[in-house]
Design a protein around this nucleic acid. Structure first.
Lengths: 380, 380
DNA sequence: CATAGACATGACAGCGCAGTCATACGGGCA
DNA sequence: TGCCCGTATGACTGCGCTGTCATGTCTATG
């Protein structure tokens, strides 16, 4: 229909019949070649490929999807932010998807979007996908709690517990709780009596996870938990939190739920005369690209986005292609604490207030370990 | 085929015929309703929608694409990095695409990928898209120069000149050259005699653009250009460049092609005893989220990613849906220089070496304007 | 030498929709 | 009254591919 002109036309994308005719085989054989099906002789395969190349033939995906019932594409639901974590995860997913031979469809859920994750999933189902990846979902007002997937499409949830009612759900944890715990323990090991926590917005599962890791590290040692300060991931919110925390003279260590907030926090502390890491140690989370170069270089935790995405997608694809089979096992990603110069032992407690050192070295030149740049403890 | 079972089955996605039967209309009428075609009475439309809701019907996109020849999706080619610029642009594109009613397919080109942009475009064409957005392409060895799009699919190139041979190409500039020029002029206006440039990798058009803006600002005032130092966008490369530049005692101002490099640069200068902004002023590019909170808060240029993406997509969609019509006009995005505390007038030149001030205020407390946080000159 | 099996290919139907055309109805206008 | 046009609907076809099954050829084996 679209193309009413008779056979004579020279434009119009070539179809598999055209290739078949040119190669002197049946249309079905062309299909076999392009799907790597068995039982095609080398000679015929060669002829078909040559004819295809000559005509500039490419498989029509729509027809393929219609006939086979599979779209060979995977949908991803992401937050619509350029935040380092979500963005990195998305890139990891893209890389991983490409390896699997599937195509990628992307849909955002804007924060505050009433439709939320459910709407995004719906739109992916409309578009037609064989599997869905939900990356770091947030829990808008608790309403997303029970997103149910009507269709029998497997879902991979990354970085969150499964709040989804669906026939087949996989979970790929980035192990944020464990990593947060490691970060907190690092501070305790340095001798800090307790560790404050600058949390992310608790609507985010990722933020809750990190808080939980912090909580469990303190709980394991029977340490009381100072009140949690909550930010919104932004450096601005970290700055605001820092002004608040700076007032607490006993505060010597903070675990921030991401690097941006840690940087804002450090700035506020510095302005308030609390030196980092002299007076206060700060650990971030993410290892954003500039973390090693801010002042002081930030001790932080690096998330294995690529590894998580790759493993998760392998499992998702397995689940798509072997609907009955058991899901592949999952292995925990490694924890990677990057120790730089924003953490140090706490100041001596004999004299309350400032420590005994009165040298005038500016904050820009911390006395702790020298800035680690691309060195042994800054693997890359 | 896929489904051999007779009519009796209760699962299997409902088709438009099923809806038609239930609503007592023809299949074609259901199609009309779902495509908002004219000539459907209100009563029939209501009945169809009700039946569809009852059955949980959703249009089958593959069939639709096959029958109509349009996939209603747009492909994006991005670099596979979580760098702030590309990531923000991608998010902007996602938001904009959603508004247009198209779906989004995403493909990365990894840096160093021999196939490069051409391969990514090819894979999108394989997948079937009605339009393509190429976001901040890079020019791998100059080989990408002439990516030609065989199919008659309109292409929108963002942030680069059009190196593409295609029937229909649109360009959406982020105006990086103009912005770079503004940044450079800001430094000259402060009294700096010249401005050094820490460039991005010149394979990137974005990096070339910024260098060109810097060049033209100096050229306009007849100022000699110091040699360009080239980094790779990373803070590490900025740091390395900083060590190099710090040796040049005459150097008082640097325009860095992105914020990450600016931050690494500042760290290196600070370690070398060159205070920012006392001794050296630094301007970054991008306005990454932490830019206002590093030490010193970074003067930088904010790119209007959302505006560019939105306008570009509007034009692309127009081009898709009106193949013959003239492309929509383009308007230049606004330049947004965010002045913070990393720039100041140059030190007095009477005494070579350090300026006249000897006060011992640490760098963390710059004498320039106070850190601007969420204030008037930090609009957000 | 007959025959089962592995291999190689083709004929045919139909996936679920949108395009085209035919048809039927109702009112304004000559 | 008859005609035409705008409206509303349906029958039919085919988009380009893949699944199923039939068919044909060749080799190994009893």
């Amino acid at each position: 229909m679209a193309q009413g002109s008779g056979r004579g036309g020279s434009s119009a994308a070539p179809r598999s019949v055209d290739v078949a005719r040119l190669a002197g085989v049946s249309q079905k054989t062309v299909s076999r070649v392009f799907n790597d099906e068995p039982y095609v002789s080398a000679e015929v395969r060669r002829r078909v490929l040559e004819a295809a190349g000559q005509l500039g033939y490419r498989l029509n995906n729509a027809a393929r999807a219609l006939a086979s019932g599979r779209t060979r594409s995977i949908g991803v639901v992401t937050l619509g932010t350029a935040l380092y974590g979500p963005a990195s995860l998305l890139m990891g997913v893209e890389r991983a998807v490409r390896d699997t031979g599937y195509a990628l469809r992307v849909v955002n859920t804007m924060e505050g979007d009433p439709a939320g994750v459910a709407g995004a999933v719906d739109s992916l189902l409309d578009q037609g996908v064989d599997g869905i990846v939900i990356s770091e979902p947030i829990d808008e007002d608790g309403h997303d709690k029970d997103v149910s997937i009507g269709l029998d499409v497997p879902v991979l949830v990354v970085g969150a517990p499964p709040p989804f009612t669906a026939p087949r759900v996989l979970v790929a944890g980035v192990g944020a709780d464990l990593m947060a715990r490691t970060a907190t323990e690092h501070l305790l090991d340095l001798g800090h009596l307790t560790v404050h926590h600058l949390a992310g917005p608790q609507r985010w599962y990722a933020a809750r996870d990190r808080r939980e890791g912090w909580r469990s590290a303190l709980a394991a040692q029977g340490i009381d938990r100072p009140p949690v300060v909550e930010g919104d991931w932004s450096a601005a919110s970290g700055y605001a939190a820092g002004r608040e925390l700076a007032a607490d003279a006993d505060m010597t260590a903070v675990f921030a739920a991401n690097d941006d907030m840690a940087i804002g926090l450090i700035r506020a502390l510095t302005e308030a005369g609390r030196r980092v890491p002299h007076d206060v140690s700060v650990v971030g989370f993410d290892d954003i690209p500039v973390a090693a170069y801010v002042t002081p270089p930030l001790t932080t935790v690096r998330q294995p986005f690529d590894a998580v995405a790759q493993q998760g997608l392998k499992r998702l694809v397995h689940c798509i292609e072997n609907p009955q089979a058991d899901p592949l096992p999952t292995s925990d990603p490694p924890v990677d604490l990057v120790v730089r110069a924003s953490t140090a032992p706490p100041p001596p407690r004999t004299t309350p207030g400032h420590g005994r050192r009165t040298d005038s070295r500016p904050y820009g030149d911390p006395q702790g370990p020298p800035p680690l740049i691309g060195g042994a403890s800054d693997p890359h």
